[in-house]
Design a protein around this nucleic acid. Sequence first.
DNA 1: ACCTGAACACCGTTCAAGT
DNA 2: ACCTGAACACCGTTCAAGT
Lengths: 214, 214
Amino acid sequence: MARPRRPLLSRDRIVAAALVLIDAEGLEAVSTRRLAAELGVSGPSLYNHVATKDELIDAVVDAVLGEVDTGMFAQLGPANRDWCTALADWARSYRAALAAHPNIVPALAQGPRRRPNALRLADAVFGGLVDAGWPRREATRIGALMRYFVTGSALGSFAGGFPDDATVYAGEYPHLDQAHLLAERQQEIDESAFETGLQALLDGLALHSPAESP
Amino acid sequence: MARPRRPLLSRDRIVAAALVLIDAEGLEAVSTRRLAAELGVSGPSLYNHVATKDELIDAVVDAVLGEVDTGMFAQLGPANRDWCTALADWARSYRAALAAHPNIVPALAQGPRRRPNALRLADAVFGGLVDAGWPRREATRIGALMRYFVTGSALGSFAGGFPDDATVYAGEYPHLDQAHLLAERQQEIDESAFETGLQALLDGLALHSPAESP
DNA sequence: ACCTGAACACCGTTCAAGT
DNA sequence: ACCTGAACACCGTTCAAGT
């Protein structure tokens, strides 16, 4: 075949196909040959559009982060210091994006690096908190700790990780005698744990709110 | 060589060597051949002691979780309802164990599964909270949300993920004009963000403490 | 410029052969 | 029981060859 008259591939098409594959079968299912086959080309073709597999995964992560809304932070300023609502809305949007693609979360481990959307998130949160009156040091910490909570909540289900075989717990783990039922209610539990934690976090931060001691 | 008079390997020796390798060079550096070479044997030898590589990584994760202290929860009961202190101590011990082996954290994604130490942690936290007076539903949520926060805080450094090249931020990310300095103060920032978040979380949870409304 | 097949140095895992 | 080398079906990546 050699070079076609119109390119068969594009970086975006490769990234999109990788995300579909990751969602369906996990990070480990992505090999350059497999992904290329999915796209109807041979393995090495990908290297015309992407430098390495690592860079490709980075691009997929960034595409997912692209779905996170940060518009709420633009509203903050002297006239609107309600950082609490903004932070809550952002955290929910962030979690929703990751929960839609849970298999990608382990790849978030390396921090923002040079991923444009990761930097966009960090910039918006930090800027919003500073606009709402938080000192820069505190704003940095809050940005970090919110990321901890949201990524942790998306890094695999808590409830879904418990075997549904009751004999696993018998005797050894006396308090987990009902744990075999967790997997069934997985989504409800993860969701309510996230909401409970988010509320606690914001309540706790509000105790030292800059708006209350101007 | 064939079979030696005394076994060259043991499951524990393999797990320990894998952890050393992961700490030094990351999860991706672990291949069965590489690990075997480190242990002075040939690749397939490992399979006399471990069923699959996945099971091996699981065992390494569990070994790390074995360093987490859960003794503080045994003190809780009708006479001592200070779940707040117990939870804080446990979270710090949990984080310390993961921070000592940050490269293993992405492998935590799958939840407790059948890892004895992961189940021990879940059992102790849940049991302690129930003993301190929390309803089972709430105790489950708190166990989950604490795990979110601690694992998220260990899943790669927040501060360390920002490039130290100032030109990355110029123009594009106006609020990140100092972000190139984050990597230098990485440990301090991650540590204080963790402490700030932990305090906020506990303060927030305390607002609905069962001990305050008996 | 963009795709191909061949090739390189790797993988995880199985298995028959050795003691 | 426990280690070995050979083998299988894979990897990521490079590169010369084609249009």
